[in-house]
Each structure stands twice: as structure tokens, then as C-alpha cells.
Amino acid sequence: MKPARWAGAIVVMLALALAVVHLRTEQARCAARMLKSEGDRIALRGELWELQASVARLKSPVEIHDRLRRLRELAAAKAEDSTVSDTNTLTLTHR
């Protein structure tokens, strides 16, 4: 065999070897990505469960009534404040 052919064969074999290595690397990378996705999925499932529980807590009738009560108190306090300031304004005007 002529040296040129030898060289060609070596190049082809080298290319094949590189392709095999590349494929194997890609396979390992894909597997790692899949494993990571699997882990992410588990974590997301956990987060979803937590969010569902949080929403349920916010939607609980006791919580809703508590929030309503707090809002009413806040509104009452604000109304009282504005009455006081109105009275002050009136007093000042009268003076």
C-alpha cells in the first residue's frame, strides 16, 4: 500500500475514533441532562405542592375573615384619622 493510502486510512480511522468519542460524550451529556431534568422535576413537584398548600392557607375561610377584619380596622382607623384632621382644619378655619 502506498503511503498516501496509509495516511488516508489513518485519517479515516482517526475520524471514526473521534466520532465514537464524541458520540459517547454526547450520550453522557444527554444522560446527565436527563438526570438533572429528573431532579428538577422532583424539585418542581415539591415546589408545586408547597404553593398549593400556601394558596390553600390564603383561601382558608378563617384567613379570609381575619384579613377582612384587619382591613375593616384599617379602614376605620383611616376614617377616624381623616375625621380628626377635618375637625382640625375646621377649627383652624373658624379661628
Binding site: W49, E50, Q52, A53
Partner: peptide, 15 residues
């Protein structure tokens, strides 16, 4: 999950 008759979550799972 355990839900009430209007779909409110009464028992769920957390991590």
C-alpha cells in the same frame, strides 16, 4: 389531597 365540597384543599403535601 383531601378537599372540602367546594374544592378547598384541607390536607396536602409539602416538602
Amino acid at each position: 389531597g383531601i378537599f372540602d365540597n367546594r374544592g378547598r384543599l384541607l390536607a396536602g403535601t409539602e416538602r
